[in-house]
Design a protein around this nucleic acid. Structure first.
Lengths: 346, 346
DNA sequence: GTGAAAGCGCTAACAA
DNA sequence: TTGTTAGCGCTTTCAC
């Protein structure tokens, strides 16, 4: 059991002062070569490492970043974490994670836990419940205390800070356009309820694409799915809706899912109906995760570049922390998405 | 912009001493009711929160746990993080994450970054490369400095500490038994190379189950797949192997995949061959993730209870940190798995 | 009932 | 070239 080394112990052991040790370890030329070498050798031997906590207290910064996400099991957020972690480490920061589980209260508690010294700033994607309550006081309070926040993906106008987003509307528009280029006109959109801004924006993009192509948007072709449904229920809702459309003599020739689960569920009901993808129907989904790659046919998806988002968010935060950016001009960075064509479209 | 409050500022503002403020905020009866109330009101108004860093330095503990995982995008580890985070928060700890990306070097760097004061202890799942190199000096050094480590899932005898594992051998044996109970005898095992201990253990379980049922194990029914292959390659390897078996007149009636990807890939080649699951072949997979639920048919899987693993690991670590356990007796806790029957078996 | 002082580990300005 | 001191924010012992 090696004891933990401190400057004090080294100083005592070598019979010099603490500050001499401190200087010697920084290779300060003001310390005689001899003393320096002696101290360095000793420190090395005992594997001395400066205590981060003491440094943090002294420097008033911890070199750690608080990352608050709504859901860790979600593939997209896992990607973001991966990117954030990677970018942070490169710049000498570590990442602490708080999972809000889509709950307002957990989001607040998590951030409160970290705000008092544990982190230098936050990177956050807002919980659904918070979005619903529209209560952003915790974020604004932290900002008003001078601690920077970078919002990503789920952002909100009410909080003034840097933001990193994917252009959901534009991406959805592009995806829809792809479908239209495939000569599809009756495109069923599987989306979320409107209070989820992501879903709302994607719906807008879908509508814009239709409009630009002089295709009439029909309300029955937009299915808003309750997001707390599990995969069974999702599929049932989708199945029921598609059957209703079919029974009404309404033919659909494409499906655009606002996430992978919806799209795969759709794929499953299509198979039951003995229809072929992409021959009879094209399918496109948002979020390029595992499901898209392992489904049959493999799904054409909009890749949201979670890793890039994480990297951008962390770098933006660190730039702000290290004052590499204009004090009070906030900006919003848009990460481009791209369509990964696989087997569910032409 | 509210300034950050400290004891010192409060003391100055209220013209009392720092220690009086400190005591008053702890509701110490040695401070007169009047002073106490005045201070508490002031602190509340200015939203005073003690500085964690200062507390950490003073108390020599940070109430944060370092969680080192090989891969964050992996569903199982995401579950573990979720559990760890949850358990930690309940006991007043926060979790900082280090992702090794299966690399030895990143594992070492990450841990070094955290070991000097940032965390009180570690929960780690060892990277594949580390396992391959069999170099555990970083872990043992940390332990010898008196900082506790809990290993989970990927554990190793060379490190003396508490361990949390799922009984891979036993679980694989049970899964295989299920197949045998379904009257399957020619069970193709899709597993990893032997240096991955997880895969190795599961292979053992498979073999034991066969033996106990007097079924001869045939080497051509064990396919060891290179783990750095992507999903395309995996599927090709699996497909080629199955075709070879078939061409050789070898009939297989069940497939046991050591992870979801292998099992889903198998499902896909089975579909190509126009065989029916579970009528013609039963399929079981390890790790109960998203793929299993969205595949058709839905996969029967061995649920590894990632969340429980995370919870158990964190609680074990905290117990050790708070000295609720015997100083130098380490134990290994086995988390039971269970088989979730879905549509790919009878 | 209140406050001064020491100390957690470190840095840096200053003194010797 | 080396050492002393103050201070980061907090707790706690001890003195007043």
């Amino acid at each position: 059991m090696k004891p933990k080394m401190t400057l004090k112990k080294i100083a005592k052991e070598l019979d010099v002062s603490i500050s001499t040790v401190s200087k010697a370890l920084k290779d300060d030329k003001n310390v005689s070569q001899e003393t320096r070498e002696k101290i360095q050798a000793f420190a090395k031997f005992y594997n001395y490492r400066p205590n981060n906590i003491a440094l943090s207290l002294k420097n008033q910064r911890t070199k750690t970043i608080g990352l608050i996400i709504p859901d860790i099991v979600h593939h997209f957020f896992a990607k973001v974490i991966a990117g954030a972690e990677q970018a942070a480490n490169i710049r000498g920061y570590i990442v602490v994670i708080g999972v809000s589980n889509e709950s307002f209260e957990k989001e607040v508690i998590n951030m409160e836990m970290m705000v008092n010294g544990s982190v230098d700033g936050f990177v956050v994607s807002i919980a659904k419940e918070t979005l619903l309550l529209q209560d952003y006081h915790h974020l604004n309070e932290i900002i008003s205390q001078g601690m920077p926040i970078v919002l990503f993906d789920r952002v909100v106008d009410e909080v003034e800070c840097d933001k990193i987003v994917v252009d959901d509307k534009e991406s959805a528009k592009n995806a829809t356009q792809q479908l239209i280029d495939d000569k599809r006109e009756n495109i069923l959109l599987l989306t979320t309820l409107d209070h989820i801004n992501i879903g709302r924006e994607r719906t807008k993009g879908y509508l814009e694409a239709l409009q630009q192509n002089q295709i009439e948007a029909r309300p029955e072709l937009i299915l808003k799915i309750q997001d707390n449904a599990n995969e069974e229920e999702q599929e049932k809702v989708i199945e029921a809706h598609i059957n209703r459309l079919m029974d009404g003599g309404m033919s659909i020739d494409a499906i655009f899912g606002v996430n992978e689960m919806y799209a795969v569920a759709a794929l499953n009901v299509i198979r039951k109906l003995d229809l072929k993808v992409p021959e009879d129907l094209s399918v496109i989904s948002f979020s390029n995760g595992v499901l898209s790659k392992y489904s049959r046919p493999k799904l054409t998806t909009v890749d949201q570049h979670g890793v890039d988002l994480g990297i951008a968010a962390v770098n933006t935060l660190i730039d702000r922390l290290e004052e590499k950016v204009d004090e009070d001009a906030f900006f919003t960075k848009v990460i481009k998405t791209n369509l990964i064509k696989r087997e569910s479209t032409f």
